[in-house]
Write a protein that binds this DNA or RNA. Structure first.
Lengths: 141, 141
DNA sequence: CTCCGTGCAAACCTTTTGCATTTGG
DNA sequence: CCAAATGCAAAAGGTTTGCACGGAG
């Protein structure tokens, strides 16, 4: 993601009457540039490189606001703090490398469809779902 | 699950040199009789009806031990404390009713297979996974 | 007898919040 | 201007842990 994206995030927020402070601009920039899935304290660290006066509380408050607007997604993987990513990509699920912590995205329309079918058969409607594959690279033989 | 199951859990533990105390016996009984997916404090509450002197710390320590032995599974659903179930049923995933908190189990061999394939294509091997469908009952028209 | 397990209370860690102060629009 | 946002520090909430005592094998 580039700076144009950070601008887009700002527009989306402004449209909802949210003020763009120096702190928020920094957080938005960091989010828009993140290729990975950083957690709150990592975002805090990166944001402070841009704007020194960002507190962790503000990071959390901004993330909550962005999530409420559907601008970012929060993922809580097993045994780790929540991690965040911008919601600009189409829906996808995640592979978590259990050795490195790396996160890889993937999509599977087939799985999505199967999920709906299963829920329907049991009398439910899927509102949202979570699919995480905790993986490792196979050992060489 | 019935009392015979509680006994089976005890055997499994004893075999690993773990002592069966009154407290643990109570926790095992509660787990083996639970048809739902109780969290630690609910287990604590139920265990105390059997054996008054069970502390929450012991509940957590016993759950950790049981999980390490693969005797129970721990599920951390969104925004709620961890919930536990005995590992006697074949593998399954969960539907969570977002209105009632009810948990429904389901299996899908197709989805399992697709997961493996996807991981393999990306150069990974699935060690474990988590699939949760957050659902509601559809409104009547 | 001897450790393993226990209760209690304090510590932990991430996330949230109350309050007085600053600041964006 | 002044409601909205911030920093700080304290609180919250689930879970873990240090320590001295108790009980299973």
């Amino acid at each position: 993601m580039d700076d144009a994206s950070a601008d887009r995030l700002e527009q989306a927020l402004r449209a909802d009457g949210v003020r763009i402070t120096r702190q928020r601009a920094a957080i938005l920039k960091v989010l828009s540039e993140a290729g990975d899935h950083p957690d709150a304290s990592e975002l805090h660290r990166r944001a402070r490189d841009i704007e020194e006066t960002v507190s962790l509380a503000t990071v959390y408050r901004t993330l909550a606001a962005l999530e409420a607007q559907g601008i970012i997604h929060r993922h809580v993987f097993e045994g780790t703090p929540a991690r965040f990513e911008t919601a600009d990509l189409p829906h996808h699920d995640h592979i978590i490398d259990i050795e490195t912590g790396d996160v890889i995205e993937f999509q599977s329309e087939k799985i999505e469809r199967l999920q709906q079918e299963i829920a329907k058969e049991l009398g439910y409607e899927v509102v949202r779902h979570r699919l995480e594959l905790y993986c490792r690279r196979p050992r060489k033989p």
